[in-house]
């Protein structure tokens, strides 16, 4: 379990990283926290000629705020978010989700951008950021674009990223003061990837009502209008009118027909909604 021989560069700016990634003569991989890529290198599932380490690029560790959103640099770590080194625009949601990722050692290095780019369906950011309508800021040969998280991931370990596209930041919408959110995941043990997860954002002031079923063998299942899930009710008691069949139907439509899998994801979603009500 040792990687193949590869070259290593640590550029200081985005342009440098993109120039290296644009090289046609070699297979290039970006390296962020290395928490997913490291094992893949060791197992020789990834065999790049050149690793481009992104962690020397100051811009990827910056945070920018506007009235309606927060932009988090791609190389911000889970621990940065957990510890509150990033302003809170989500009524505590991001810090709470970050806190639940893996173990502290992984959170110290793993990054929000790397997590999305890796596109493991069982990962936390993939599910939660899709639920809150976050966007992925991408820079590449085609310039700069912003893709909604729910469209960013196209399948298991698959994204819209072209080989030399770089995720530079994640755009997080600012929640209203009375927004309610919930995130529930079922893991066999502490720090393990989830086998069922769900997230919900109920933000009536902004007319946002979204839910996501995650940890399925595909991109997250997004209910962009989740009203039906709580019988079109709003407010603090939406859990009381939770309709599990809506979740099961969504799974069915997405091709997940196993009744036990449907049930456990519906349970996850119900608990996410209950959490949202309890907040």
């Amino acid at each position: 379990m040792k990687p193949v021989a590869f070259d290593y560069e640590r550029p200081q700016d985005i342009a440098g990283a993109l120039a290296l990634a644009g090289r046609a003569d070699v297979a290039v991989k970006f390296l962020a926290g290395g928490q997913s890529l490291g094992p893949m290198l060791n197992l020789r599932l990834a065999q790049p000629d050149l690793l481009v380490d992104l962690t020397g690029i100051a811009e990827l560790k910056q945070v920018g705020e506007t009235t309606d959103a927060l932009e988090i640099g791609a190389c911000i770590t889970h621990a940065d978010i957990e510890d509150g080194r990033v302003p809170d625009v989500t009524n505590g949601a991001l810090a709470a989700v970050a806190h639940g990722i893996a173990y502290r050692a992984v959170r110290n290095r793993g990054t929000i951008g790397g997590s999305l780019a890796h596109a493991d369906p069982a990962a936390d950011w993939v599910t939660f950021l899709a639920a809150i309508g976050a966007g992925v800021v991408i820079r590449g040969s085609g310039g700069r674009r912003v893709v909604p998280v729910e469209e960013f991931m196209t399948g298991v370990f698959e994204t819209v990223l072209a080989p030399n596209d770089l995720v530079t930041a994640i755009r997080i919408p600012r929640f209203s003061a009375d927004a309610r959110w919930g995130y529930y995941k079922a893991c066999r043990k502490t720090g393990e990837f989830a086998y069922a997860s769900a997230a919900v954002l109920h933000d009536p002031t902004r007319s946002v009502n979204r839910a996501v079923i995650g940890a399925v063998e595909a991109r997250p299942i997004v209910l962009a209008d989740a009203g039906e899930l709580f019988g079109r009710r709003t407010g603090a008691d939406i859990a009381a009118s939770f309709v599990p069949q809506v979740a099961m139907r969504a799974m069915d439509t997405a091709g997940f027909k196993n009744p036990i899998e449907q049930k456990v994801h519906a349970v996850a979603l119900r608990r996410a909604v209950e959490q949202a009500c309890a907040r």
């Binding site: 094992p39 197992l43 066999r188 043990k189 502490t190 720090g191 393990e192 990837f193």
Partner: peptide, 13 residues
Amino acid sequence: STLIDYMLPGAAE
């Protein structure tokens, strides 16, 4: 073939 798939009890379990 890795500890992602082979689950051992940890301190929390």
